[in-house]
Design a protein around this nucleic acid. Structure first.
Length: 422
RNA sequence: GUGGGUGUAGCUCAGCUGGCAGAGCAUCGGGUUGUGGUCCCGAGGGUCGCGGGUUCGAACCCCGUCACUCACCCCA
């Protein structure tokens, strides 16, 4: 106990029982992305600090107090990426992808970093799987993106999730809507919780999802709050109607959440999220939305985009709680006797060209090897008995069929192959 | 960042008002040197998170610290 070092706060090791599940989930995700026609992009884990500050919004919490900023030995102002949309857009512009064709469908997975107080499902190094569709402003792009989003969860066996969807309009309509909210809250403004009073100034859209009992009771005294979707510009309203119709047509189950707001400033029009209550307070499993102004803001031509990111750590937590176990069991266990230990190693290596094979490394007794064989769950036991070996034969037990045969070592591979596929 | 809770064997946890650090599971070995997960016997494994303090004596009380955890905040 008390090793000299421990993983830094908010980071953790993924141990073999975890990586088996992670790899499984990642493989499923790659399949889904590929069927939707998305290609992988890998961008640096750190970027210029300015990139994130400008894209996420100077006033956002992520930038204000959660960014891992540092300067390198050449005094460059850098930051570990807190999310990956900014990096993908930067790469898109830097490589001139926009000039090669109009629409690009990209996906990524990897670690992100935010400095917050750790909690179950909230880490300082966490992992996201995400996608970006750059170059289309059509409502169909939003619909496809949301369908892809829910199909990823489905591929992991997490179904029954309902996507919450909203439209956050444009920066201009959002500002105007904020004023409407302030006016709506004005009668009770001085009685609101301290948190809400602060948000009333900085980000009035956030007041609506307060958890304060006091605030919620005050809301009851007011008429129904104004809804963002009722105060969109004409184009955004058309877009919103088309997205809802598209989701209905495609068969994606969703509900409209009029209070849904995203944490990063670059979102426009469509925003969506999915939650899982079994996770406790950190219930957001993933979310995304449209970001039509971002690319221009980062120095590119006016270019629309939509994307999402999924919290991999949280999703894996849900899978774990649902009892998903992924294992890669030994299929063949080679048991040796004193005179056949070397031969066993040779045979194991040959069989490993095709099968999952284990054999004793430590010169353990025959009994000990047999006990280990029982616990391993291996279907086949290849036993190199001294007498049989002398005659050029080995015994093979099949625990599924309950049989034992004696064959020449050269015939093993073919026998195993036929038994496994049978 | 704010406020609570918890740290004892690899894991799950006991440990009374301060008095020799324990169990179950897991691991390893054995049950006549050639056939299995059960069963029986045995063994190894601890800086009681870490550092101070109080005390004749601290896993236990006090202070600090690190980590985890719950809620808030924020979000994935």
């Amino acid at each position: 106990m008390a090793p000299k070092h421990q993983a830094p706060r908010g980071t953790r090791d993924l141990l073999p029982e975890d990586t088996a599940r992670w790899q499984w989930a990642e493989a499923r995700a790659r399949e889904v992305f590929s069927r939707y026609g998305y290609s992988e992009i890998r961008t640096p884990i750190f970027e210029d600090y300015e990139l994130f500050a400008r894209s996420s919004g100077e006033s956002s919490d992520v930038v204000q107090k959660e960014m891992y900023r540092f300067s390198d030995l050449g005094d460059r102002a850098l930051a570990l990426r807190p999310e990956n949309t900014a990096g993908v857009v930067r790469a898109y512009l830097e490589s001139g992808m926009g000039g090669r064709s109009r629409i690009h469908k990209l996906w990524y997975m990897g670690p992100m970093f935010r400095y917050g107080r750790p909690q179950k499902g909230r880490y300082r190094q966490f992992h996201q799987i995400g996608a970006e569709l750059i170059g289309s402003a059509a409502p169909g792009a939003d619909v496809e993106m949301i369908a892809l989003f829910v199909d990823l969860y489905r591929a992991w066996g997490i179904d029954g999730l309902t996507v919450a969807v909203n439209s956050v309009g444009t920066p201009a309509t959002r500002l105007a809507y904020g004023d409407l909210l302030r006016a709506w809250l004005a009668p009770v403004a001085t009685q609101l919780s301290a948190d809400s009073q602060a948000r009333l100034v900085t980000n009035p859209l956030r007041v609506l999802d307060t958890k304060s009992e006091v605030d919620l009771a005050l809301f009851q005294q007011l008429p129904a709050p104004p809804r963002m979707v009722d105060h969109l510009d004409a184009d955004s309203a058309d877009h919103w109607a088309a997205v809802c119709a598209g989701l209905d047509a495609v068969g994606v189950a969703y509900e409209v959440d009029h209070g849904l707001v995203r944490g990063l400033d670059y979102y426009t029009r469509t925003a969506f999220e999915v939650h899982d209550r079994t996770l406790g307070a950190q219930s957001a499993l993933g979310g995304g939305g449209r970001y039509d102004g971002l690319i221009e803001q980062l120095g590119g031509p006016p270019t629309p985009g939509v994307g999402f990111s999924i919290g991999q750590d949280r999703s894996m937590l849900v899978l774990q709680e649902r009892g998903l176990s992924v294992e890669n069991p030994t299929v063949v266990l080679v048991v040796a006797m004193d005179a056949t230990r070397t031969a066993a190693q040779t045979l194991a290596r040959e069989l490993r060209q095709e099968f999952a094979v284990e054999s004793d490394l430590e010169g353990r007794s025959f009994n000990a090897q047999m006990k280990a064989a029982g616990k391993s769950g291996a279907r086949f036991l290849v036993i190199l008995g001294e007498d049989e070996w002398q005659r050029g034969q080995v015994a093979i037990k099949d625990s599924k069929l309950g049989t034992q045969d004696v064959v020449a070592p050269s015939a093993l591979a073919a026998l195993l192959r036929s038994r496994i596929t049978a």
